[in-house]
Design a protein around this nucleic acid. Structure first.
Lengths: 172, 172
DNA sequence: TTTTTTATAGTGAGTACTTACTTTTTATTT
DNA sequence: AAATAAAAAGTAAGTACTCACTATAAAAAA
């Protein structure tokens, strides 16, 4: 991948994440990336394909982030690790995640199955720990993690630290 | 308010909620509302003011929906009633709420204080019930309610019914 | 009551400008 | 010189918004 292509992807990510896909023009992306507008269309078929390319990278990142949980063998660790996960996101990747949550509200990008392996792991963990309703506990935990992530993206990690401890105590 | 003005508001709400503000043209709104494009700008200063008008109506609805909770005198009822609240949303109002959640990701519309009175009521309830950390429990509950609401808007009420019972059992 | 005035509601073609995308021209590498 | 990469210029279809004008209806004056 050429430098300029990477610049385009980076610029597009930042703009899409903060302003929204429709609000950002290809001209604005080109300017931010320091390239001509035409170059965008040499590297990507159209504006939509540029977004798709970003989202594909996102899916890889999601897999990497959740991989340690899938390999975790201690059920309680699965839960505690999951709660702590959002706090390990680097600030440089916030745009990435902001875009994910934004696009969750654009139906064509909402993909339920993306989290399936993680939820299955949660169900396994809650079963092992003898919880009454592992399936519901699992989706509950998933949503809690999402909520913390949103809180961090909006108000920073510090704002959610108490919350992290509070939740870890809940799951003992 | 004239019929046509109401048509414009209705059409704009539906389109904004499903496609997103920037993705919808005033031309599309006019066509859906069955009016001339010019009429939109007679009734509203600009496209943004049309959205503002919709959001103002939304704020009123939010107040009405949460009012019963603020007047509730039994702390456990506050919690149970809150969990059940999302299930009382009528299907005809889904667009309304979808737009709310969508715009939460557009910073200028995100208003923390909107829910302040409700959270204060939650804190009061958890304090009365002798919980160790009422403030954190309150934001936790708020986020749970938001999560259920999102689930309902995405997958319908039925999909969240088990969840409702599960949560009410959690708070006994 | 009839006529006149004034305000409001509504239209649809036109405005300047922006959009995503294409074609042509220029620079750089092999 | 040939091939590739990038920039610049261009295009046609939209975009939000305006404007001159008409239709309706309420208020005021006769």
């Amino acid at each position: 991948m050429t430098d300029k292509k990477e610049n385009i992807l980076k610029a597009a990510l930042e703009l899409f994440a903060n302003e929204g896909y429709n609000a950002v023009s290809t001209n604005a992306i080109a300017k931010k990336a320091g390239v001509s507008e035409g170059l965008i269309f040499r590297h990507f078929e159209n504006k939509k394909a540029l977004l798709d390319s970003i989202m594909q990278m996102a899916e890889q990142k999601i897999n990497i982030v959740f991989a340690p949980i899938l390999f975790e063998t201690d059920p309680l660790n699965v839960i505690h690790h999951s709660i702590s996960l959002p706090f390990q996101i680097e600030e440089s990747e916030y745009d990435f995640w902001r875009l994910q949550f934004k696009l969750k509200w654009q139906s064509e990008y909402y993909n339920v199955d993306k989290m399936k392996p993680v939820i299955d792991k949660f169900i396994w963990a809650f079963t092992m720990l003898g919880y009454q309703n592992p399936a519901l506990e699992a989706t509950f935990l998933e949503q809690i993690i999402e909520t913390i992530s949103i809180g961090i993206l909006r108000n920073g990690k510090e704002s959610q630290l108490n919350y992290q401890q509070f939740l870890i105590n809940k799951y003992q």
